[in-house]
């Protein structure tokens, strides 16, 4: 089955991974800007990273018939540095019109500090001013619930927010209900040890249906699996879900969500 991985960090993955994903049916990815695993030394590192996401990674993916899209932003971990964040946001604006950019992301909170909130508020304002779609990172483990609620509070406070153009990612059992009830898209990340597993993601589909839900690998430089989405497909079949429901979650939903971005162009295979 053809599928999209709507959140994967290909800059941290090998070309062998791209080949394996293509063999498994991947036809497109979207890669949000994120933390490198260490704090970058300055603005130039971010500029080069944005170039990598908009120039190099699309070419690398194209060698395997995979369309590469990306999201640009200032990640929550480095957002603690307000001066650097403002420089990065100003630089980011110059990249938003590049042809594979879907919007602003992944942005969000990590430890939910005042500085993170201040940077996030600026990023949301830039996105809304430019009518950009947004992709949100929600915090890990014990911070996830309150961080997700705080992100929703920030979005609710701005009347310009179009919830149908926002994805709240890394949803789990304690957060997906409020995200869907409030009208946002919900991303479920499939990780070996934290976040969700393919089995628990199918549990959520059984409980909440297939509307406005996407699943992703969020594969990066840490323990993660670039073939997590095909493993979700396998679990869906094992649990008796229809092919139509599976296709809806792994292919049609990402297309529907991405199609709201002015830069998204995708021609399905015949």
């Amino acid at each position: 089955m053809q599928y999209f991985d709507p959140h994967i960090h290909m800059a941290s993955r090998t070309t062998d991974d791209l080949q394996a994903m293509a063999l498994a049916g991947c036809v497109g990815v979207s890669e949000p800007a994120f933390w490198a695993g260490f704090d970058r030394s300055g603005l130039d590192s971010f500029r080069d990273y944005f170039r990598q996401l908009t120039e190099w990674e699309p070419k690398r993916a194209a060698q395997f018939g995979i369309r590469h899209y990306c999201w640009l932003g200032m990640n929550a971990k480095e957002a603690e540095n307000l001066d650097l964040s403002r420089q990065v946001i100003a630089t980011m604006k110059g990249f938003l019109d590049r042809p594979n950019v879907l919007g602003v992301g992944e942005i969000g909170l990590n430890k939910c500090t005042p500085n993170e909130v201040a940077t996030l508020a600026e990023l949301i304002d830039v996105a809304l001013q430019g009518e950009e779609q947004m992709l949100f990172h929600t915090p890990h483990l014990e911070e996830k619930y309150r961080g997700t609620r705080m992100i929703l509070d920030l979005l609710h406070a701005d009347a310009r927010t179009d919830r149908s153009r926002v994805c709240i990612d890394h949803c789990e059992e304690q957060t997906i209900r409020v995200v869907l009830d409030e009208g946002y898209w919900a991303g479920i990340t499939l990780y070996p040890t934290t976040k969700g597993t393919p089995e628990r993601a199918v549990d959520l589909v059984e409980q909440f249906g297939v509307d406005r839900i996407m699943v992703n690998s969020s594969a990066d430089w840490g323990p993660s699996d670039p073939l997590a989405v095909p493993k979700f497909i396998f679990q869906m079949r094992r649990r008796g879900q229809t092919e139509a429901n599976i296709r809806r979650v792994v292919y049609e939903n990402p297309l529907t969500f991405f199609n709201q971005s002015r830069n998204f162009q995708f021609k399905p295979a015949e």
Binding site: E142, K144, Y145, D153, Q174, D203
Partner: peptide, 22 residues
Amino acid sequence: SRAEQLQLIFSLPYEREWRKAQ
């Protein structure tokens, strides 16, 4: 669900008025 309740046990509390504290 049990899974949701378990997640909430391991979660920090959310304060609706968090912005006042910041």
